[in-house]
Design a protein around this nucleic acid. Sequence first.
DNA 1: TCCATATTTCTATAATTCCAGAAATATAGA
DNA 2: TCTATATTTCTGGAATTATAGAAATATGGA
Lengths: 116, 116
Amino acid sequence: MEQTDAVAALSALAHPGRLGIFRRLVKAGPEGLPAGEIGRLEGMLANTLSSNLAILAQAGLAVSRRDGRSIIYRADYEAMSSLLAFLMEDCCGGEPAICGPVVTRADAGACAPRRC
Amino acid sequence: MEQTDAVAALSALAHPGRLGIFRRLVKAGPEGLPAGEIGRLEGMLANTLSSNLAILAQAGLAVSRRDGRSIIYRADYEAMSSLLAFLMEDCCGGEPAICGPVVTRADAGACAPRRC
DNA sequence: TCCATATTTCTATAATTCCAGAAATATAGA
DNA sequence: TCTATATTTCTGGAATTATAGAAATATGGA
């Protein structure tokens, strides 16, 4: 991941409305949610919602597909994973014990996480 | 972590200069770096650097201490960990296999990550 | 005390982002 | 085709953020 992409993703998330949408999508899982339902749940006007969803999609954090009259959005977990890896790259220059609180799956090896 | 705090942290990181500083601090480890050296490494004016460091500190992502004439900044790994946990809360509503790419130490149990 | 170094604060301008209203587009069904 | 629903695009003004220059503050040493 490039710094430019990371800034785009972080900027997309650095907004209460979009952060709410993204977390909602994370919870919703890979099936995603129709835009209309997101708007209802988050209490957002359709136009504001649409531009915020577009910003998340542009940043690579959300993916959309059409289903009849609805457009379904879902979180892109791989993009999120890349972002986290970028943030923590070369953490502590090789002192695993200290950077322990944060770990990506790639580093976790054969771990079996309790959830997610 | 509250949504407000998460937005503050994400906003702090959503800036090329500050993201560079933060990643530099992550690499540097718990000893941190003096502001002047960060400025030299990142090619930033002292005043710009100072306000950006203040924004990172205000967001809880960096911590400072004085050492003689220098002020040493270090990344706050716990704050980062909280942020990641907040972003991924209730991921996939209970389908661990799918949210796998992203995992926080709290979820990883007794794992021994390869690095950090 | 005086000076040099390190960092922060103040200030003004430039640039960007946010949001609501209105209009436009796409799809499904009568 | 006509109508209703779902979503997006366009637009303008308000609010926020970014940046550099200049001045101020803090510390250590002569």
